[in-house]
Design a protein around this nucleic acid. Structure first.
Lengths: 224, 224
DNA sequence: CCTGAATGTTAGACTGACCTAACGGGAGTG
DNA sequence: CACTCCCGTTAGGTCAGTCTAACATTCAGG
């Protein structure tokens, strides 16, 4: 069975379950999946049951949701497609890095394996997408993540942005406006714990920027 | 309502109904649609009924199928998408002109209006797809067809291929092998009426080629 | 003009995806 | 320790798309 035999929602479920464990350990909940896909929890519950029947996830009622090996394989294939497509849209079609997510979300269900191969060749086998996320090799595993969340970065040490979570398109547009993008260099001024605010300074800029915790959690940095 | 509000099969039905009248007058039959989409006639009958309910086609039981103005608009939009995508796949991703049809068939349902616009710009507003078919302008009508079918071309007069129907992928591959493509120059040697064979000579080739009627109907030529 | 083959339609069933509404389980609080 | 509230699940409904099987229509040949 190849990934193209699955329905688009099924592919989305697998990808989301896998993605939940890419940057943190906590497994995803039915509610969170419903929220992200814009459907009701009952719909997701239904879908998970179907996936379990196909042997792609294991799930006991009210229990945690885990991918089987087969499920993980399909999930990684979808992630590969998504990230290659994002890279393609930016490099070939001139999209902004903050506007490719939704387009890739649809295209990933439509492109053939042949087209993915040709895109990979045209782009000369890229390893990171426009947000800095690693692109899994065909049939393989993604490169391990690198860096720490901005919210956990040491103050006063120059760092470079390595990835920005593409989960929230509005946040991406906001970051793009501020000039925060992969490869941007900055220094954390300070963390204010109870206000949940991280103050950063962009190299060559006048003013400092205050980021809330959702923003500071979405940006990964690595020391220069 | 935009074309993206329709289901993929609905978009396909509209496109096929429209396409049937592009190169000949005879309207399409339910059976032919079923055949081309690889489904049973009852499925198409059902689908047509749904389209009629949405005001996109007019259809009395056992009667002919006609597009309404709204239906035609959607159909032309799908044809534009299809042909732009085919051109894109050949020019940017290096597909052969004989292998783009199926890929475009799927992609046309997935790409956004934005992506179509960007592709159109990247290709500098092409007017013909790789098979020589006219690409309708946005919201507009396709350029009128040009040329005659090979089966109806005068013998002994040098002509150039202007379009090749993309309806049958196997036939396209066969043409590609023979060296028959848009812009190929040739001369019709003779038509043999009762054998339904057209003999042609490709400029600069040793041997003549015999084509059956389905092939000679699928190729359009124009005098040099 | 009748009739039968070819073609199209309807009926009834299934699946996946969605919904709303009702119900069940589990975790923290009084 | 029980209760309550949140979350997830189940039940039951709708819709599009598909099928098979049965039925209807049309038209061309006899």
């Amino acid at each position: 069975m190849t990934v193209s035999d699955l329905t688009a929602p099924a592919q989305d479920y697998l990808k989301m379950i896998w993605s939940a464990t890419e940057w943190s350990e906590s497994p995803i909940t039915v509610g969170a999946m419903a929220e992200r896909m814009g459907v009701k929890p009952s719909t997701v519950s239904d879908g998970i049951r179907r996936l379990a029947k196909q042997g792609l996830v294991t799930h006991a009622p009210y229990g945690s949701i885990e991918l089987t090996d087969a499920g993980r394989e399909h999930a990684v294939e979808m992630v590969r497609r998504h990230r290659l497509l994002e890279t393609f849209l930016v490099q070939i079609l001139g999209y902004g890095w903050d506007e490719v997510h939704e387009e890739a979300e649809v295209l990933e269900h439509a492109v053939s394996a042949t087209m993915i191969r040709r895109i990979d060749e045209l782009l000369e086998h890229p390893t990171r997408d426009p947000h800095g996320d690693p692109i899994p090799s065909p049939g393989g595993l993604p490169n391990p993540p690198e860096g720490v969340r901005l919210a956990a970065a040491d103050p006063d040490r120059p760092v470079t942005i390595t990835r920005i979570s593409d989960a929230d398109p509005d946040m991406l547009r906001y970051f793009a406006e501020l000039g925060l993008a992969p490869d941007t260099q900055l220094t954390v001024r300070a963390h204010r714990p109870y206000a949940d605010i991280t103050t950063i300074h962009l190299d060559g800029r006048e003013v400092d920027i205050d980021l809330g915790s959702s923003a500071a959690e979405a940006i990964w940095v690595v020391g220069n």
